[in-house]
């Protein structure tokens, strides 16, 4: 009887450990798994060239299924994710940011804000993204947008973070050039995210 109980306990613990570790390492828990979606990192924007590919390893395939289902393979689109500002602090709805960058070498690009549940923030502001067709390129060759919970009202392009809590940004590049695909570390230009200030602290 004692041996049977020990075996049952061992098997139960093994099941919990096996399933739990798979859920964690594949990104199916709120905790970010180590390493996944980080095989490419450019200016804190991270990606994985195996998205959508038959060659994706089981962890990447399960991760994409949870956090980016129906993503396109790299020949058509590449995806870069970022959840921190230029100082490494988590992106939060109670902070204001300027996001700006040069124009990437791709047919089309966009930056979209997603809430912690991986969907668009539920705020009714209809200001979830900026894309190549709407971005205004300044004299310095860069586009800019204000990223905060309320419309800045200063004529700048606004991306709303209202009701987003801690959020992330997805940088889409469609039909990127061969150079961007093969050597993103040198060929890809990525947006900067400059924190202006957070509620309850002085703007800097």
């Amino acid at each position: 009887m004692g041996a049977l109980i020990r075996w049952l306990a061992t098997l139960a613990l093994a099941l919990i450990a096996g399933v739990g570790s798979a859920l964690w390492l594949a990104g199916w828990t709120p905790l970010d798994p180590p390493g996944l979606f980080r095989s490419i990192e450019v200016n804190r924007w991270t990606s994985d060239p195996a998205i959508g590919s038959e060659t994706a390893d089981p962890y990447t395939r399960a991760y994409v299924a949870r956090r980016g289902l129906l993503g396109l393979r790299r020949e058509e689109a590449t995806y870069y994710l970022r959840a921190v500002d230029d100082e490494g602090a988590a992106l939060r709805a109670d902070c204001a940011y300027v996001i700006e960058g040069a124009v990437p070498d791709a047919r089309w690009w966009s930056v979209t804000l997603y809430a912690g549940d991986y969907f668009l923030a539920q705020n009714g502001d209809d200001a979830h993204s900026i894309d190549a067709s709407r971005a205004v390129i300044g004299a310095d060759g860069r586009w800019r947008a204000t990223l905060q919970a309320s419309d800045p009202g200063d004529g700048s392009f606004w991306i709303s973070s209202r009701n987003a809590g801690e959020f992330d940004l997805l940088y889409r590049l469609y039909n990127a050039s061969d150079a961007v695909l093969e050597t993103p570390e040198t060929a890809l230009v990525t947006p900067d995210i400059i924190r202006l200030g957070c509620r309850g602290e002085d703007a800097t």
Partner: peptide, 12 residues
């Protein structure tokens, strides 16, 4: 180990 690895693989 046998059960944990099997469960891990099957879950993935």
């Amino acid at each position: 180990l046998l059960v944990a690895v099997s469960a891990h693989t099957a879950t993935l």
